[in-house]
């Protein structure tokens, strides 16, 4: 009798207990399947307790949820730099891929094209515009951004004349060179951005999140399932942010 009562109590508790959320929104990683990402993350996090992964497609909605949040968040470093002060955020971990915590974006197009027409990009539109003004400064005024679902779409849209240029990560351009060297050989890099930090795991400085969560993310690359999920985010690992990098990110 006591056992049944106990089981019922646990069940009720799990039904009404609010799970701790991990909020995800990134301008940089063109992930197309949030449903699959959420399922994978939730399944993985279940082993560690009542955690839930909550991805957002819309920046405004994401920021609305951030207010009064005790959650751990995953965002792009560019977005972090823009909002860290307003939301009292502190970067804890930084994404790593192929041993580097930074990545560069390139502006790619057919040879000898004037800076005019459409630029395909799989990044958030505001971020794309900012990148464009960094890459071609005043030339960006005559360029119109077309948002596409994937970086490979952006590259192919240049290759098959749907756009004049594409902004993609150097990694994606290298992938195209491997897969379709015939197409890639006609394209050239017009400009390359300064290395930018990859995505960041952060928490509120005031309302600290469950410290276990940071540990869970830090250890994700040590097992197969965790590695597969990181792969869906297009990264290999999450490592602690060094003091020096933290200062640089804040700048």
């Amino acid at each position: 009798m006591f056992r049944i009562f106990f089981v019922l109590l646990i069940l009720l508790n799990s039904l009404f207990a609010g799970s701790e959320k991990i909020y995800f929104y990134t301008t940089e990683s063109n992930i197309n399947n949030f449903k699959s990402l959420k399922i994978s993350f939730d399944r993985y996090l279940q082993k560690f307790g009542g955690f839930e992964f909550q991805p957002f497609k819309n920046q405004r909605t994401f920021e609305k949820y951030l207010k009064d949040s005790e959650s751990v968040i995953i965002i792009s470093s560019w977005h972090y730099q823009n909002i860290a002060k307003d939301y009292n955020l502190e970067a804890k971990l930084i994404a790593e891929k192929k041993g580097t915590i930074t990545d560069s974006q390139v502006l790619v197009g057919y040879k000898n094209m004037p800076y005019r027409g459409v630029v395909a990009s799989a990044y958030d539109k505001a971020y794309s515009k900012e990148l464009l003004s960094e890459l071609v400064s005043s030339g960006s005024k005559k360029l119109t951004v077309l948002s596409v679902p994937k970086e490979i779409d952006a590259l192919m849209s240049v290759g098959f004349k749907m756009s004049k240029f594409a902004i993609v990560s150097q990694d994606s351009f290298n992938l195209l060179k491997e897969i379709n060297p015939f197409l890639a050989k006609n394209l050239e890099v017009y400009a390359k951005s300064e290395p930018k930090y990859r995505m960041i795991v952060a928490e509120s400085k005031i309302k600290k999140a469950n410290s276990r969560l940071i540990e869970i993310f830090k250890n994700m690359s040590s097992n197969r399932v965790g590695l597969d999920i990181l792969g869906q985010l297009r990264i290999d690992n999450m490592k602690p942010v060094s003091k020096k990098d933290l200062e640089n990110i804040k700048e």
Binding site: N32, N33, S36, I152, L233
Partner: peptide, 10 residues
Amino acid sequence: PVLLYMFNEI
């Protein structure tokens, strides 16, 4: 498997 992020639906 590294490219699973590309799919809209699995």
